[in-house]
Amino acid sequence: MIEVEGLKKSFKHFEALQGLNLNVRQGEIYGFIGKNGAGKSTTMNILAGLSKPTSGECLVGGIKVSDIIQASDLDLGYLPEDPKFYPWLSACETLTYLGDSGTHRIKPGRIQEILEWGGLDKDKHRRVGTFSRGMKQRLGICSAILHDPGLLILDEPSSALDPQGRNDVLHLIKGLKDMGKTVLFSSHILNDVERVCDRIGIIASGRMVLEKSLKDLEHSHLQPVYDVTFEEKITEEAQKCIKSSIGVLSTEIKEQVMVIKMEDGHESILTLMQILIDNNLKIVGVSRRKPTLEDIFIKEVHGL
């Protein structure tokens, strides 16, 4: 759906994007994460056809962004980082205005449907100038999906929302996927990204440092650490035995639970089980530590 190769963008003397590669597949939810100033918004602005790349290839839905005449030649909905509205129009008037454009016209009833979905129904006749930041954000998302595009590019869609609103947005993003749409969104709230994304891309200083499916990522970043819960209180003797087994790096006891860190090359669960069986220890459960996206993110962009 989106193919970006060697994308560069310079502002005067500052190179915001330094050869970025990015790939979003049809029908997936792609989480775009990176530190402040990494170049997320710059990239999304180019993908939405609003600004031109200095160099590099950008294909959006099979169309080269450098070939388009106007932004709307691309079939996508875009939520800018800071969506701006006419303060003197009401929410309803704003959507009516945006909904009526020569190329795509919306069906009657669509605006009401969108306003209800966006939770703006009761404020639809209020001027947008009086809206809170979160309400404007909701209206921005409403306008992005107004034309029912196949691809959505959302720049921090949940940033200004309350917990309920964030939940709603994540719900919608998931719903969009079920409708066969592709979503690219950026966020600083890694928990949100973890909850809905199929794949993620981590950008740092204008370059993609990591692009993987969330599953692969968890797998490749699995730590060789197990939490083993024992039936009874762990004896010092048992601990000594485990510690001296081949493949165990260190152990630590927290009440009934022993944290066992394995050596590289011995991280498989079978090795651990063998050790436990050999020592005739009764256990209640074993779980391998899962890295959070935050752990991965911090590890990947560390020092960049």
Partner: peptide
């Protein structure tokens, strides 16, 4: 930047 959304929505 008030023209951004209209332009994205296909306004000429």
């Amino acid at each position: 930047n008030t023209l951004v959304l209209p332009i994205c929505s296909g306004k000429k």
